[in-house]
Simulated assay, not measured.
Amino acid sequence: MKVLELARRRKTVRKFLPEKPPFEDILKAIDAAKEAPSGMNAQPWHFVIVDDPWIKERIREVCEIGERKFYEKVSGKLGEWLKEKGFSPEKPFLSEAPYLILVFGYTKAPYWLHSTWIAVGYLLLALEELGLGTVTYTPPNPRAVEKLLNAPKEYKLQVILPVGYPADPKPKYERKKLEEVVSFNGF
């Protein structure tokens, strides 16, 4: 499949079928992600795959503590949007998805942040090609999850990707038109 087709098809998924995808598919997607470019070819990413129900539940509990604190403070346009879309501090997808892929960046590498997120982009498209859905969930309290998983201090959690077969009926959010996001020879 072509990249543009994958990108247009890919949408955020927060609900999953209970059927567990083959572990080999998770590894295939990560194999694609590790091919992303990185500053000085440092490849500063590390992927932690979690399928243990107990660990997934602990991750969910820790994240929901941070979410509750976040929701107590959020206001303005973001607060209105979250309310309108029906979001809350509860994140059931963290324990219900068959797999969680946690993506960490090695902070001692040059350009680690940019490089890690390019790998995440590759991973999203690879998962889509394999028929798997996900949401890029960035917990408000990543340090708590890092501690839970005994991550070395020089690795920072960037995103948690709950992964499985999609069961989310909502459509993809509309995208801006090309002419709205492109200009030539200046802004």
Rank of each mutant, 00 (worst) to 15 (best):
M1H: 08
V3Y: 09
L4D: 06
E5H: 10
A7V: 13
A7C: 06
R8A: 07
R8H: 07
R9V: 01
R9D: 06
R10H: 05
T12C: 13
T12D: 11
R14Y: 08
K15S: 05
K15A: 07
F16W: 04
L17A: 04
E19K: 03
K20G: 01
P21D: 03
E24T: 07
E24R: 08
D25P: 00
K28M: 04
A29Y: 08
D31F: 09
D31I: 00
A32P: 00
A33M: 12
P37H: 01
S38E: 11
M40G: 00
N41T: 06
N41V: 03
A42V: 00
Q43W: 10
Q43Y: 10
P44E: 03
W45K: 11
W45H: 05
W45P: 00
V48T: 15
I49G: 09
V50C: 06
P53C: 05
E57R: 08
R58M: 05
V62N: 00
F70H: 02
Y71T: 07
Y71R: 03
E72C: 01
E72Q: 12
V74E: 01
G76M: 09
L78E: 08
G79I: 13
E84T: 15
E84W: 06
K85S: 08
K85L: 10
G86R: 11
G86F: 10
F87L: 03
S88C: 02
E90H: 08
K91G: 09
S95E: 14
S95F: 01
E96H: 07
L100D: 05
L102F: 02
L102P: 01
L102Q: 07
T107A: 15
H114S: 11
G121K: 08
Y122S: 03
Y122T: 07
Y122W: 12
E128H: 11
L130F: 08
L130K: 15
L130Q: 12
L130T: 09
G133A: 12
T134E: 07
V135G: 10
V135N: 11
T138R: 11
P139W: 00
P140S: 02
N141V: 04
N141H: 02
N141G: 04
R143W: 03
E146P: 14
E146L: 14
L149R: 14
L149F: 14
K153W: 06
Y155Q: 04
Y155E: 07
K156F: 09
L157C: 02
Q158V: 09
V159G: 02
V163G: 12
G164A: 06
Y165W: 10
D168A: 01
P169T: 10
P171H: 01
K172H: 09
Y173D: 10
Y173C: 00
Y173M: 09
L178E: 12
V181C: 02
V182Q: 05
S183K: 14
N185E: 11
